[in-house]
Design a protein around this nucleic acid. Structure first.
Lengths: 209, 209
DNA sequence: GGTATAATCAGGGCGACCCCCGAGCCACAA
DNA sequence: TTGTGGCTCGGGGGTCGCCCTGATTATACC
């Protein structure tokens, strides 16, 4: 054997076909090996501590909890965990949340095989792997738009078609307060109406359908 | 050999990892074999007529043209083409457009291996394969919401944050006309404001970000 | 203790949105 | 021809979104 210590990898993705694809790519590469794969977030956390892999490939859209939350739970107890995010989402907010949670790398799913292998080797070696495509996006929009948790609540309710008065009732505050939140949202997202605010927020991953 | 005539399959998906996963699943199954894979729509059409596979697995989100358009181009010249749509999208409109274009099956990407194999065998045998999850969605919302092409234009412009007056200018019509279109859109989508109309349209795949 | 920010609330004003009614033109089908 | 439906356009009126200026609490940070 040429690899005394192959890189062990845990694959987390809710699509079986993607898990198979990743296994096929990784296992055909010398020096790395998939030791487990799972489709749900909580199971991923449990499996991580059972297997202690060198690398975790983590999708963000999982059926139970958000991938960033799974990353946070892992890094909370094991700060040296090396996790690479692997997703189709390229909204700013998703990237920020994943990196904040402790991810060391970020891959978009339209990557080619070479990029995946390189990312695994880089992160396994202790480096970070942020592709130019993603890095540029972060550099562009800094400073991060500091949308408040409360503002996101309002945004989500607006997206579901509620009027300000209805949002106010739902959040048990006055309509004036909702007006203020909306004003701040429009300002922070640099748009001039609530509809555009919703589409921008969706594009950035601040809210979801 | 146990399979004198294995089912030949062309895989169309813009994600290399998904193509690898599909190959891994299919080629490990007796009686079927991937004979080609490609990531773009126009190349898929060309490759179909070069390879003449029994089955095409077609993603809808492709970098160049929409998957439904690729299906249409194939079925135009080869009406007996057997195409299975394979996508993460579950909006009504996407399903309708794909089936109208000539697709014989519709699979969501969170399927398991068994479903994929079954769908291939069914469609190769001349049957249709519409999973209950998708079939129910079609049954629910029938009759199909007949949103007009013009209304979709308006919807798309509204989603990008334009006011009715700006939409009118962009389409070189009067504001009264745009008001009428908006009224019809709200009625057909069964919502009461433009913001909700946009989110519903996004969910149904009528428009995209 | 001073500063900053988030979250809460109020009144007034203007324009946009949405609904109601009406209408004519055109293409296609029965 | 008649009918159907899409696209176009107008007036009037009520509601709502958004802006403006102001304010008080609470929390966090230095």
């Amino acid at each position: 054997m040429d690899a005394p210590n192959p890189i062990t990898i845990l694959v987390v993705d809710d699509h079986p076909v993607v898990r198979d694809g990743l296994q096929a790519i990784i296992n055909s590469e010398p020096g790395m090996q998939v030791v487990g794969d799972v489709g749900k977030g909580v199971e991923a956390v449990a499996l991580y501590f059972a297997l202690r892999p060198d690398i975790v490939l983590m999708d963000l859209l999982l059926p139970d909890i958000h991938g960033a939350e799974a990353i946070r739970r892992i890094c909370e107890k094991s700060s040296n965990a090396q996790i690479i995010v692997l997703t189709t989402l390229d909204g700013d907010e998703e990237i920020y949340r994943a990196l904040e949670a402790g991810a060391r790398g970020y891959l978009l799913k339209d990557m080619v095989r070479r990029e995946l292998v390189q990312a695994i080797r880089d992160v396994a070696a202790g480096k970070r792997y942020i592709p130019a495509q993603v890095g540029a996006r972060i550099a562009e929009n800094l400073p991060r738009p500091d949308i408040t948790a409360r503002e996101i609540e309002v945004l989500q309710l607006i997206a579901s078609g509620l009027r300000n008065k209805e949002v106010a009732y739902r959040l048990t505050v006055s309509e004036a307060t909702v007006n203020a939140h909306v004003k701040h949202i429009l300002s922070k997202l640099d748009v001039s109406d609530r509809t555009h605010a919703v589409t921008v927020a969706l594009r950035r991953g601040i809210i979801h359908l």
